[in-house]
Design a protein around this nucleic acid. Structure first.
Length: 276
DNA sequence: ATGCCGGGCGAAGCCCGA
């Protein structure tokens, strides 16, 4: 079962590329961030034509997240990150997806929920950028991360296979940037930002890409500006974090870097995991 | 120090991003 996440930087202007990527890689679940449109303007029919069920939490002009799933979306549990009724940004959507029937695999079902064939809970997020530091935008980012921490603590109590995916806007470690010193004053790489991300991981989550790819040079974002792609000045800020019950089923993880050289690319590329 | 590039909005130039 393949689950992928992609900040597509505008779903309508990126529709042809999104459809080509879905056809080429065939994820069972695809999570988008920065769809930059309302629920009504989301091109659901195009994705339904490829066999996907669609759940959208959109917003006019910017932000916005969506989940596509070939399996039924059993429960679109949450739209909008809990913990602050005054936060109007559309940055979080959570759904439960039924896993494919297990087939001949003899694995017992004790650790993956109890419904038929088991389920995977998908939390799809677009974490605030937070720049510039020292402003209310950075305070909003840190507050958002605290709210995420509290929400994830609750989810982990369910003891389900859980994937927390999306654009975290966090460079976790120096190895996750080609030129870490150039991000020293950026919200994505502040000590407070990195500490909040570690606190999240320390709940017992596994960073799927890093678990499979310990080497340097693994990036998910290259700025449009200053020839960042051509010079490979990338950063790794799009992540898939797994609960223990999901990590038990990890088979592989990777980055679809090839989309960055397409015509009119997103500045982010897709990240995926393959689960048993 | 700022802009570089790019989408959205809306019809010029600003907001937002990372």
């Amino acid at each position: 079962m393949r689950i992928a996440t992609w900040n597509i930087n505008g779903v309508r202007s990126r529709l042809d590329g999104a459809l080509a990527w879905l056809k080429e890689t065939g994820p069972d679940v695809a999570c988008f961030q920065e769809i930059k449109c309302t629920d009504e303007a989301f091109p659901a029919e195009a994705f339904e034509g490829l066999g996907y069920n669609v759940a959208v939490h959109g917003q006019k002009g910017f932000n916005g997240v969506a989940i596509l799933s070939k399996r039924p979306l059993d429960e679109v549990a949450v739209k909008g990150l809990p913990g602050d009724a005054a936060d109007t940004h559309s940055r979080y959507i959570e759904a439960v997806v039924s896993r494919p029937e297990p087939g001949p695999e003899p694995r017992p079902e004790a650790h993956n929920g109890s419904r038929n064939g088991g389920v995977v809970r998908i939390a799809n997020l677009y974490l605030p950028n937070g720049n510039p530091i020292g402003t209310d935008k950075f305070a909003y980012k840190l507050a958002w991360m605290r709210r995420l921490q509290e929400h994830v603590e609750g989810l982990l109590g369910l003891e389900e296979p859980l994937l927390i995916v999306g654009d975290f806007n966090v460079i976790p470690e120096p190895v996750d940037a080609r030129n870490p010193q150039s991000w020293a004053d950026d919200a994505l790489f502040q000590p407070e930002t990195r500490a909040a991300f570690r606190t999240l991981l320390n709940l017992g989550l596994t960073d799927a890409v890093r678990a499979c790819h310990p080497e340097p040079g693994v990036y998910t974002f290259w700025d449009y500006q200053a020839g960042a792609w051509q010079k490979d000045h990338g950063i790794r800020i799009d992540h898939i974090l797994m609960s223990p019950q999901a990590a038990d089923r990890l088979k592989a993880s990777g980055i679809d870097k090839f989309t960055r050289s397409w015509e009119k690319p997103s500045d982010h590329v897709p990240v995926w995991v393959e689960l048993a």
